[in-house]
Structure formats: structure tokens, C-alpha cells
Computed example of a mutant assay.
Amino acid sequence: MTLLFTIFALVFLTQLISWIGQSVLLEVVYALHLRVFHAATAARQRKLKSDLLTLKAELMRTSAQDQFAKWAKLRRSVDKGLADLEKLNGEISARKSAFSLRFKTALWILTTGLQFVVGWWYRKAAVFYLPPGWLGPLGWWLALPFAPAGSVSVGVWQMACKRVLKVGERVVRELSAARVAEAELRAEAKEKEKEKEKEVKTE
């Protein structure tokens, strides 16, 4: 029974990651990683952006003809701030690329890689046994490739879990789309009723 739930949990985790999306997860985890391990860099980037916005606003208020010395000084400060921010953004981008590679590798190992390992390790084990003669002569294929006859193998159980989760996802999406459509129809009906009431009042 432990094997049954372990495989289901692995397949569910893989599907959950695909539902959320790797890129969304990467952004969330990287933002957390920046705050925890590179808080000073993130704070410096925020400060640079804030200072740059302040300097740009001041530059826009300063006349290049009437206050040329002040305008030129502000212009140099803005250019320097932009160069510093670009350099810092480049460092953060390089860090993010390296983090992205490690993150995607870790995700693959924790999901697909772990499923392969469990499938190979328990290739001869039965996840559970079916009642005798339950599927008649067709029951043998559920034990493929190496599980005992009359049982359900790890590979077949993985496929069944994945299929059930995908069907469940489709059903949930269709139900939510139907609810959204129903809510839109109700809103349209209410608007039409209000328009009719307005027409009656104006008459």
C-alpha cells in the first residue's frame, strides 16, 4: 500500500508542477532565493531604481537652458545610475540563469527522475493484486513488464494515475469554464433587465 501511495504522490507532484508551470515556480522560488541569500543585492537594486527615478524626475523639472550646470550634473548622475543598474541587472541575470539550470535539474530529479528510479527499483513488485479472473484473459497486461501475474505493475499504475489526474484536470477546467459562462449570462440578463426598467421609467 505504501508503494501505491508513493507512486501516486510522485505522479501528482509532477502533474501539479505542470499545472502551475515551471516558469511561474522558478520566478517565485528565485524571488525567495534572492531575499534570503542575496538580500543586499536585491536591496541595492531597489535603491538604485528608486534613486534613478528621483533623479530623472528632478532632471525633467530642471531647465537645460536656464540651469545648465545643475542639469549637466543631474544628467551625469542619471547616466552613471543607469550604467550601475545595467551592470547590477547583468549580474542578477547571470545568477538567475545559473539558478534556473539548477532549479530545473532539481525539479526533474524530484519528479520524472524519481519516477524512473522507483519504476526500475520496484519493476518486479506488485503494487496490488486484482481479484482472480477479474479481467479474464486480458489481466496479464496489467502486470507488464515484470510484475507477478494477476497483479498491477508499477509502470501500469503510474500510467493509470497520470491518466486519472489528466481526466480530472479536464473535468475541473470544463466545470470552471461552464461556471464562468453561466456567471456571464446572468450578468448580461441583469443588464438587460436594468435597461428594460430604464426604458419603462423614461416612457
Score class of each variant (00 low, 15 high):
Trp120Lys: 10
Ala106Glu: 00
Val171Glu: 13
Phe37Ser: 11
Ala42Tyr: 03
Asp51Asn: 05
Ala98His: 01
Phe146Lys: 08
Glu58Arg: 09
Phe128Arg: 04
Asp66Gln: 02
Gly81Glu: 00
Ala126His: 08
Glu195Gly: 13
Ala98Ile: 03
Arg102Leu: 04
Ser23Asp: 15
Thr54Gly: 03
Val154Lys: 04
Glu193Gly: 05
Ala189Pro: 03
Asn89Cys: 03
Gly90Thr: 06
Ala94Gly: 02
Arg102Asn: 04
Ala83Arg: 01
Lys49Ser: 13
Glu58Trp: 01
Trp71Glu: 00
Gly136Tyr: 06
Ala160Met: 14
Glu203Gln: 11
Thr111Glu: 07
Ala39Phe: 13
Thr54Ala: 08
Ile17Leu: 13
Leu53Phe: 10
Ser63Gly: 04
Glu199Tyr: 07
Leu107Val: 10
Ile7Pro: 00
Ala147Phe: 06
Ala72Arg: 05
Thr54Pro: 00
Pro131Glu: 06
Glu182Thr: 04
Met1Tyr: 03
Thr62Trp: 00
Lys166Thr: 15
Leu4Arg: 08
Ala39Tyr: 12
Leu3Gln: 04
Arg179Gly: 11
Val127Lys: 03
Gly168His: 15
Val117Ile: 14
Glu174Asp: 13
Val127His: 06
Glu86Phe: 03
Lys96Met: 06
Lys196Thr: 07
Lys70Trp: 01
Phe37Pro: 02
Glu203Arg: 12
Gly133Thr: 09
Thr202Trp: 10
Phe146Ser: 10
Ala98Cys: 02
Gln45Asp: 14
Cys161His: 14
Arg35Asp: 09
Trp140Tyr: 09
Leu10Asp: 02
Lys47Ala: 13
Lys70Asn: 02
Gln67Phe: 05
His38Asp: 11
Thr111Leu: 05
Phe146Tyr: 12
Phe128His: 06
Thr112Ser: 08
Phe68Ser: 05
Trp120Thr: 09
Ala149Lys: 13
Ser151Ala: 10
Pro131Met: 06
Gln15Asp: 15
